[in-house]
């Protein structure tokens, strides 16, 4: 009898705990529960969304890397050798659900500085036919980001697609309206309130430890191709395709 009672109480406790877990946040503060968080390990959020949505695996989303002036941009995917190397602003295509590693170097504002930011692709666009390359997702590094990373801080940017109905009159991405969350806050949650989170950009002081660096440091192995010719925007440069000896592109 005691065993049966204990099992019944355990079952009730489990049902109660499960029902409370989904709404463990304070209901007065959050009208819905945001399961994603930018503080999760890199690649975790993109993998979760990819399992839920199951987007077209053959679709590659163009992204464009922008820096204050110019820089040498290299892109990695699960290998210590860069697949692409070019000059910023640079455009290439990546797959959703994957993590990629970049390398920024030869920046005039920061001589000798070498940074290895990561980009985590959460979502994609759905442009009309023929306009795919004209609308890349911008990955913008401003001078404050680069300076903070050089000082040893970790800067996380959640780039989101803005909802037009609640859009601001100014461009919210290029330093016209700074949106910064408090330490410990969920940047994805705030981004989801303004639109659709697309990319998580992390830039800090981590550098590869040499040839023995773990492959996951350079990404999760998603496809990476160079950008197509850009028609509408002359301010975007092309990244040449992978050279036979890509390591030679390093200074």
């Amino acid at each position: 009898m005691k065993v049966a009672t204990r099992q019944l109480l355990s079952l009730l406790f489990a049902a109660f705990a499960v029902s409370r877990t989904a709404t463990a946040q304070n209901p007065a503060d959050a009208p819905y529960y945001q399961p994603l968080n930018d503080r999760l390990p890199p690649g975790y959020n993109a993998e979760i969304l990819e399992r839920v949505r199951r987007d077209d695996a053959h679709w590659l989303q163009p992204v464009r890397v922008e820096v204050p002036s110019t820089a040498q941009v290299s892109a990695y995917s699960a290998a210590p050798e860069p697949l692409l190397t070019g000059t910023a602003p640079a455009q290439f295509s990546v797959a959703t659900g994957h993590l990629y590693r970049l390398r920024l170097a030869e920046m005039p504002e920061f001589p000798g500085l070498e940074l290895f930011p990561s980009i985590e692709i959460l979502d994609r666009l759905h442009p009309p036919e023929g306009l795919k390359e004209n609308y890349p997702i911008p990955v913008v590094f401003d001078e404050a980001d680069l300076r903070a990373a050089a000082e040893g801080l970790l800067v996380t940017r959640v780039i989101y697609l803005e909802r037009p109905q609640i859009a601001a009159s100014g461009d919210p991405l290029r330093s016209e309206r700074a949106q910064t969350v408090a330490p410990g806050g969920n940047a994805i949650d705030l981004a989801a309130r303004h639109g659709r989170p697309m990319i998580i950009v992390r830039i800090g002081g981590r550098v590869p430890s040499g040839p023995d660096s773990p492959p996951l440091f350079f990404g999760t192995g998603g496809p990476l191709v160079a950008g197509e010719p850009v028609v509408n925007d002359a301010g975007v440069a092309r990244i040449p395709r992978r050279s036979p000896n890509p390591v030679a592109s390093f200074p």
Binding site: P138, T156, T180, V181, G184, A187, H194
Partner: peptide, 22 residues
């Protein structure tokens, strides 16, 4: 009219992680 526009939310974390004083 197809015209997506983007924004970003920025977070800066120091050496002492997971400290929340708000």
């Amino acid at each position: 009219i197809y015209a997506p526009r983007f924004g970003s939310v920025r977070s800066v974390t120091g050496l002492v992680a997971d400290t929340k004083i708000d």
